[in-house]
C-alpha cells in the first residue's frame, strides 16, 4: 500500500516538510517506513534508533503532532488517504532532521544526588528489602529515557523553563531514589528549591505519553509534592520538628 510521508528535513537554522511516497507492507511501524526512505530515497535522513522494540527510547519523535516512539507506532492505525507527518520532538533543539539535542537531560541527571544505601540493612547474604516495598520504585525504574514526557511537559515545551524545572523524567528519578527502601540521602529540599516541583501543575500530559505506562504524575510527582508540603508547610510537623525526618 502506498503512503505519503511528510518528514521534517533540516537543521536548527532552516528546514521544512519533505514529501516521500513509500510502499508500506503489512505489520510495518513508522520507523520501518523511515528506514525505507533512508535506504532508497534519502540516504542522509538523520534519525536515532537502537532496539526497535520499545526498550531503549531512542526513536522519539512527533507523528501527526503526537509524541510517540516511532518503533512502536504501527502503520495500520493510519489511513493511506491522509499523509503521515513525522517531525522531531519540539522541546529540544533540532540537530538535523529527526535528531534533537537532548544533552540538557543528561545535565539534569548529573545534578541529582546519587543513591546512598544504608549499610545497616545488609547482612552476609546481601541487602534485605521486600518485594512489596520495591514495587513502586520498580515502576519508576521501567523508564527508558525516551524523554517524551519532557517533550509534552508544558513547563518545558510551552514556557521553556528548563532553568527552573527538571521535568517529569527527573521527578520520577527523584521519586525512585526518595522511595528506595535502602536510600539514606535527603533530596526533599532540593526537590522544591532546585528541581522545581512546584512548577508542575498536574495536567498529566506526561503520564498520557509514557510508553512504559508509568503513572508519572499520580505515583511519582504528587507524592513528591506531598513530601515537600509535609516538610515545609505542615503546621503540626513544624511545631514538633517531625517534618525534618526523612520518610521512606
Amino acid at each position: 500500500m502506498k503512503y505519503n510521508f511528510k518528514v521534517f528535513r533540516g537543521d536548527k537554522d532552516s528546514g521544512g516538510l519533505v514529501d516521500y511516497n513509500v510502499d508500506v507492507d503489512e505489520g510495518m511501524v513508522v520507523l520501518d517506513v523511515i528506514h525505507r526512505i533512508q535506504a532508497h530515497q534519502a540516504n542522509d535522513l538523520a534519525v536515532r534508533w537502537n532496539c526497535k522494540a520499545g526498550k531503549c527510547g531512542s526513536c522519539s519523535c512527533e507523528i501527526n503532532g503526537k509524541p510517540r516512539l516511532s518503533c512502536m507506532t504501527r502503520m495500520n492505525e493510519f489511513s493511506p488517504d491522509k499523509p503521515v507527518t513525522v517531525t522531531p520532538v519540539k522541546t529540544f533543539p533540532v540537530i538535523k532532521d529527526l535528531v534533537t539535542d537532548v544533552s540538557w537531560n543528561y545535565e539534569q541527571n548529573k545534578r541529582i544526588k546519587p543513591f546512598k544505601p544504608d549499610p545497616k540493612k545488609k547482612d552476609a547474604k546481601g541487602y534485605v528489602m521486600f518485594q512489596e516495598d520495591v514495587d513502586r520504585v520498580q515502576e519508576f525504574r521501567k523508564c527508558i529515557e525516551c524523554y517524551l514526557c519532557q517533550d509534552v511537559c508544558h513547563v518545558l515545551r510551552d514556557h521553556d523553563r528548563k532553568d527552573k524545572f527538571v521535568g517529569p523524567r527527573f521527578m520520577i528519578r527523584l521519586a525512585s531514589l526518595e522511595m528506595h527502601p535502602l536510600d539514606t540521602e535527603d533530596r526533599i529540599p532540593a526537590v522544591r528549591d532546585e528541581y522545581g516541583s512546584g512548577f508542575c501543575n498536574i495536567t498529566r500530559c506526561c503520564t498520557d505519553v509514557c510508553p512504559e505506562k508509568i503513572q508519572i504524575t499520580d505515583n511519582g510527582i504528587i507524592p513528591l509534592k506531598e513530601r515537600v508540603v509535609d516538610r515545609y508547610y505542615d503546621p503540626i510537623a513544624r511545631i514538633f520538628g517531625g517534618g525534618k525526618k526523612k520518610q521512606k
Binding site: 544505601p117 546481601g126 541487602y127 534485605v128 528489602m129 521486600f130 520495591v134 520498580q138 525504574r141 528506595h180
Partner: peptide, 19 residues
C-alpha cells in the same frame, strides 16, 4: 551482582527479602 545492588539496582526479591 551484589555490587550492582549497592549502586542502586532494584532486583526482584525472594520472600525473605533477598535478590
Amino acid at each position: 551482582v551484589r555490587e550492582l545492588e549497592e549502586w542502586g539496582a532494584v532486583f526482584d526479591r525472594t520472600k525473605d527479602g533477598y535478590i
